[in-house]
Nucleic acid binder design. Structure first.
Length: 272
DNA sequence: ATGGTTTTTCCTGATT
DNA sequence: AAATCAGGAAAAACCA
């Protein structure tokens, strides 16, 4: 209530600008509950805050923001909160349930008290749904965890979607194909603004990059694979296997530094 | 259903 | 000292 929406509107906040912690914990600690710790409940969000929320959730699920018609979410928090589950389905197709679920959590406000220690993330990693379809009476979740490679929507930039049909369940994922570890890493690299400080390019044109928060990346990876016990130690073992296949090239002496090899595709700026 | 591929897990030892 | 790097081995998870 005390939100001065005017100030918000005057300076369109980016996520980073008001995100107090540039830390991965905001992203991997489940969804919502403390994404906006300092902000009002969703009912009081401005359009910009709705936008930021959308971006965050989509990011978390590695779904391209462009796969849903953003015009459908040109509204403030109050309006957003009045949307039904069906509305979400219509507005965002198969992503709808995800958004609905996230918003539901946020609506419940501060009742979440997840305190996460830097090293203890296990407790809330189960924000992912149980794969058992029979268990949930509320069909909050229809997670597009499956890569859905067969449904081709390869059009590089197809803004054709005006409204998502709730029947045609399909999600265009941001990465061209599959979700292998190296692709996961690449996709983080490809979104530097949205993934502050996780991994950074060391030499963009050469494909050299460095892990800044190795354990955080590992946790993120684990989350994607629904494996809460992933560690950088294990992730890095998988990375080392890439050397042989020339997906990665070895980089001497420098710790946490890797380099894409000839068999890694899609990371160059001048490449598709 | 099965075999190939990729990732995970665990481990020992070296390096920084 | 604690992290990271190196790979071997084998199990598990994935995929065609």
């Amino acid at each position: 209530m005390s939100v001065t929406s005017s100030s918000v509107l005057e300076s369109p906040l980016t996520w980073e600008s008001f995100n107090p912690y540039h830390d991965i914990h905001t992203m991997i600690s489940g969804y919502s509950a403390h994404l906006f710790p300092n902000e009002s409940p969703p009912q009081f969000w401005s359009k910009y805050q709705v936008w930021d929320w959308l971006q965050q959730i989509m990011d978390m699920h590695q779904i391209d923001l462009s796969s849903i018609p953003l015009q459908n979410f040109d509204m403030d928090g109050h309006q957003l909160c009045s949307l039904s589950y069906q509305d979400f389905l219509l507005a965002a197709g198969s992503v709808g349930p995800i958004l609905f679920h996230s918003l539901s959590e946020l609506k419940l406000g501060g009742q979440y008290q997840m305190e996460i220690g830097p090293l203890d993330l296990k407790l809330e990693v189960d924000t992912y749904p149980d794969p058992d379809p029979s268990s949930s009476p509320t069909e909050l979740y229809e997670p597009p965890l499956r890569p859905t490679p067969p449904v081709a929507s390869p059009a590089p930039s197809s803004p054709e979607i005006k409204r998502c049909n709730s029947r045609s369940y399909q999600v265009k994922r941001q990465s061209p194909r599959g979700s292998h570890l190296w692709e996961f890493i690449r996709d983080i690299l490809l979104h530097p603004e949205r993934n502050p400080g996780l991994i950074k390019w060391e030499d963009r044109t050469e494909g050299v990059f460095r892990f800044l928060k190795s354990e955080a990346v590992a946790q993120l990876w684990g989350k994607k694979k629904n494996n809460s016990s992933m560690t950088y130690e294990k992730l890095s073992r998988a990375m080392r296997y890439y050397y042989k296949r020339e997906i990665l090239e070895r980089v001497d002496g420098r710790r946490l530094v890797y380099k894409f090899g000839r068999n890694a595709r899609g990371w160059k700026e001048t490449e598709k």
